[in-house]
Amino acid sequence: MDTDRVTLPENFRQRFYSELDSTNAEGLRLLAAGEDGNQWVWALHQTGGRGRHGRRWQSLAGNLFASLTLRPQCAAHTASQLGFVGALAVHDAVVALAGKNQPDLKLKWPNDLLLNGKKAAGLLLESTSDGAGRLSLVLGVGLNLAAHPQDVPFPSTDLACHGIDVNPREALEALADKTAKWLSVWNDGAGFEEIRTAWDERSLPKGTALQVRVGDDRLNGLYRGLDQTGGLMLVQDDGSERRITTGDVFPL
């Protein structure tokens, strides 16, 4: 397998590693060293894959570990919309990879991809903000291609389980292609309304019963949709509406 080079859209670069601690960590190091953004950092093996707030991402052989480095020219709160951009790209990449064999794909707030209700991909956005508020950002994607972890809080799956056999290189080509497309739609935040609409079309249906875990709090309610800024709107059991910007979402 010729893994070390993928065909990328115009204006994107790549760095391939056989092994890294974390593609996000390496992407942030490259940005801190002064490299330009728009570079895909990817590895066949990750020894310290990261999830939300210091959690471990189990990096099983044969899966895709890739991070896109970016230097967004927008304010930090606008940059958080990149999670939706990335989620759309991962979703559409899997649609393209699946071909005629389309599985049931749904997005779960804010940026997990569910395949038949189980998690097939996760995103982690990390950035640094310097004294002047300039952001160096990585959009990290873990896509389960060949294997999935068993001992995780949310049930997971992989593409091979559903008859979609692709290697990391093919997966990254599809992902890079869709990411370039949705980044251009997003346009540093100017096109977020289109992103929001597209995300909504691919999400769990409105009215889905959800539990949101924020720290030790548990909020139950029905999914109402995304608000103007991408916050999750939850109708709680007492009828009140709550806007969520942080937390883990579990369909009930």
Binding site: A32, A76, N111, L124, L125, G131, G230, T245, T246
Partner: peptide, 19 residues
């Protein structure tokens, strides 16, 4: 440039650096 804290919004974790 040292990290002082993280701020999370919608799963974007931003490290705030010492100015």
């Amino acid at each position: 440039g040292d990290t002082l804290c993280l701020i999370e919004v919608m799963k974007l974790f931003t490290a705030i650096e010492a100015p």
